[in-house]
C-alpha cells in the first residue's frame, strides 16, 4: 500500500508538471489581459491533434513536431486576440471576453469533430509505451520526458518574464495597465504577444496530454475545468501559484484514485471549493480588483 502511494505521488508530480505548463498559459493571459480563456482546454486538444496529424501523416517525431506546432499555436493565439479580444472594451468586458473565448472553443471543437470524428485517439511513439525503472518504480518515459519538457518551457516563460525587456513590459501591464501605457508601453502589443504565448504552451501541453491520455474533440471540457480549478486555487495571475496548485491537485487526485477511482475528480473540485471557503483568493492570489 505504501508503495502504491509513492507511485501515485511520483505520477502526480510528473503529470502535475504538464498541467502546470498548460495552467501557466491560462494564468498569464488572465494576469495581463484580465481574461479567463475558456478556450484553453480545447486548444490543448487542438495541440494534441496537430501532433497526431504530424506523426501519423508526416511521420515526424512528437517532440520534433513541437517546432512546428508551437509557432502555429502562437500565431493562432495572436490572431484570436487581434480579431476578437482587442475589440472588447467597457463595463461588461469580463463577461464578454468569457463569451468570446467560449465561442472560440465551440468553433474549434466543432471543426475538430468534423475533421477527426468522435473516436478517441492517442499519440504513440516508442517512448509512450516503455517505462523507466527506478528503485522498483515504473515511470513511463513519456511522463519523464513530458515533465522535463514542461520544466524547460515553464523556466523559459519565467526567464522571459523576469529577465527580458519584454517581460518587464508584461509585468508592468499586469501591475497597472493605465500606468504602463502612460510610460510608453505598447500594451496592445504586449496583450497580443501574451495571448500568443499563453496559447503556444498548449501545443506542448497538448502533445504530452495526447501521448498520456486517449482524447477526442470533447476532451477540452474536462481539461478546462481542471485547469480553471488549478489557476483559481493557485491564485489568478500567479505563475508560482499555478505550479504549486497543479502539482498539489494532480497528486491529490492520483492518490485518491488508489482507493476511490470514480470519486477522484470530485475530490479535486471539492478541494478547490474547500480552499476557497478559507482563502477566497487562492494560495498566491493578488487582491482582486475592486470595481468591474
Amino acid at each position: 500500500m505504501v508503495r502504491e502511494i509513492y507511485q501515485a505521488v511520483a505520477d502526480g508530480i510528473l503529470v502535475g508538471g504538464v498541467y502546470a505548463l498548460m495552467a501557466v498559459g491560462l494564468t498569464l493571459i488572465f494576469g495581463v489581459l484580465d481574461i479567463i480563456n475558456i478556450a484553453q482546454g480545447v486548444l490543448v486538444v487542438l495541440g494534441g491533434y496537430l501532433s497526431y496529424s504530424l506523426s501519423t501523416r508526416a511521420h515526424i517525431d512528437l517532440f520534433a513536431g513541437l517546432l512546428i506546432t508551437i509557432p502555429a499555436m502562437f500565431a493562432l493565439g495572436v490572431v484570436v486576440h487581434w480579431a476578437f479580444i482587442r475589440r472588447l472594451r467597457g463595463a461588461e468586458r469580463t463577461s464578454m471576453t468569457l463569451l468570446v473565448t467560449y465561442a472560440v472553443a465551440l468553433i474549434v471543437e466543432g471543426v475538430l469533430y468534423k475533421i477527426y470524428g468522435a473516436n478517441n485517439v492517442q499519440l504513440s511513439a516508442p517512448y509512450t509505451t516503455a517505462s523507466l525503472h527506478v528503485a522498483g518504480f515504473y515511470l513511463p518515459w513519456i511522463y519523464v520526458y513530458g515533465f522535463l519538457l514542461a520544466v524547460a518551457l515553464v523556466a523559459a516563460v519565467y526567464l522571459l518574464l523576469y529577465r527580458s525587456r519584454f517581460g518587464r513590459s508584461v509585468r508592468a501591464t499586469m501591475a497597472n495597465e493605465t500606468a504602463a501605457r502612460l510610460v510608453g508601453i505598447d500594451t496592445g502589443r504586449v496583450g497580443a504577444l501574451t495571448f500568443g504565448i499563453g496559447v503556444a504552451v498548449t501545443a506542448a501541453g497538448g502533445m504530452v496530454f495526447g501521448a498520456t491520455n486517449a482524447f477526442n474533440a470533447n476532451s477540452g471540457y474536462d481539461l478546462i475545468s481542471r485547469l480553471l480549478a488549478i489557476v483559481i486555487l493557485g491564485g489568478l495571475g500567479s505563475i508560482a501559484g499555478a505550479l504549486a496548485a497543479s502539482v498539489f491537485m494532480i497528486t491529490l487526485e492520483s492518490v485518491v484514485t488508489i482507493w476511490y477511482p470514480t470519486w477522484a475528480i470530485a475530490v479535486f473540485y471539492a478541494a478547490l471549493v474547500g480552499v476557497l471557503v478559507i482563502r477566497p483568493r487562492g494560495f498566491f492570489g493578488r487582491k482582486e480588483v475592486r470595481a468591474q
Binding site: I36, T94, S95, S225, L228, I232, A266, Y269, L276, V277
Partner: peptide, 23 residues
C-alpha cells in the same frame, strides 16, 4: 460558498460545482 468571491472566481466555482453534481 460561491458568492463569497468576486465575479471571475465565481464563474469558475460554478463550473466546478457543476462538475461535482454531474459526477
Amino acid at each position: 460558498i460561491a458568492l463569497r468571491v468576486r465575479r471571475h472566481t465565481f464563474i469558475v466555482i460554478t463550473i466546478a460545482i457543476f462538475f461535482i453534481f454531474q459526477l
